[in-house]
Amino acid sequence: MIAILAGRRPAQVPAARRASHLVERNAILYRREWSLIVSGFFEPLLYLLAIGYGVGSLVGSAVTLNGHPIPYAAFVAPALMATSAMNGAVYETAFNFFYKLKYVKLYDAVLATPLGVADVALGEIVWALIRGTLYALGFLIVMAGLGLIASPWAILALPAAMLIGFTFAAVGTAASTFVRTWQDFDLVLIVMIPLFLFSATFYPITLYPGALQLVVQLTPLYHGVDLLRSLTTGSIGPGLVGDLVYLVVLGGAALLLAAVRLQRLLLK
C-alpha cells in the first residue's frame, strides 16, 4: 500500500495492443457505414476533374517547374492529395473526437476498461491514419491512371501522405481538447479553408510577393503540398528535408500537447 502524494500521476505509456481495440471499434462502426468511406474518395477526385482539367484547360501550360511547363492537372493533383490528407485527419480527430469526448462520453466508458488516455489518443490517431492512407492510395492510383505521375519518387508519396495525415491528426486531436461547443468549430474551418486555398495549392508560391511567400512557408499545409508535389513530379531538392522536419516537429509537439490536455480533461 502506497501513500499517495497529491497530483503525482506517472504519465501512462500507450500500449499498441490496447490502442488497437479502439481502432477495432471504429472499424466495426464503419463496416456498416462503408459508403461513408467510399464517398470520401469522391471529393478530391471532383476537385481534380474540375480544377485540374476544367480550369486546367484555361491555364494551358502556364505553369512551369524547373523551367519546364507541366500539365496543370499534374501540378494540382499532389496538392489536392495533401489537402485531402489534412482534411481527413482533422475531421476524423477534431470533429469526431470532440463528438465522442463531449457529446456521447464514449471515452468515459472506455477509460473504465484497461485502456488509458494515451491508448485512446493513439487509437484515434492510428484510425485516422488508416483511413487517410486508404484515401491517399486510391488517389495515387487514379493519378497514375491519368498519367499525372512523372517520377518513380512518387512511390514515396504514400508514406509522405501518411506523415501529413499524422501531423494533422495530432494537431486536430490537440485542437479538439480546446473546443467547448460546436460553434468553436467555425474556428477550425477558418483555419482550414485558407490553408487549403493559399498553400500554393492552385498556383506556384512564386506568384506571391516576397513577404507573403515567407508567410506561406510558415504554414503546415504548404510543406505537405511541397513534399508531395516534389515527389510526384520528381523535382527532388534540399527543400524536402525542410518539409519533413517541419511536419515531424509540428506533429510531435501537437501529440505531446494533446496527451497532456487529455490527461487533464479525462482524469479529473
Binding site: V55, L58, V59, S61, A62, V63, F202, Y203, L207
Partner: peptide, 11 residues
Amino acid sequence: GLGSLIARGPV
C-alpha cells in the same frame, strides 16, 4: 491567384 496564371495561358 489562379486568374494571374490564366492571364498567361492560352485563352
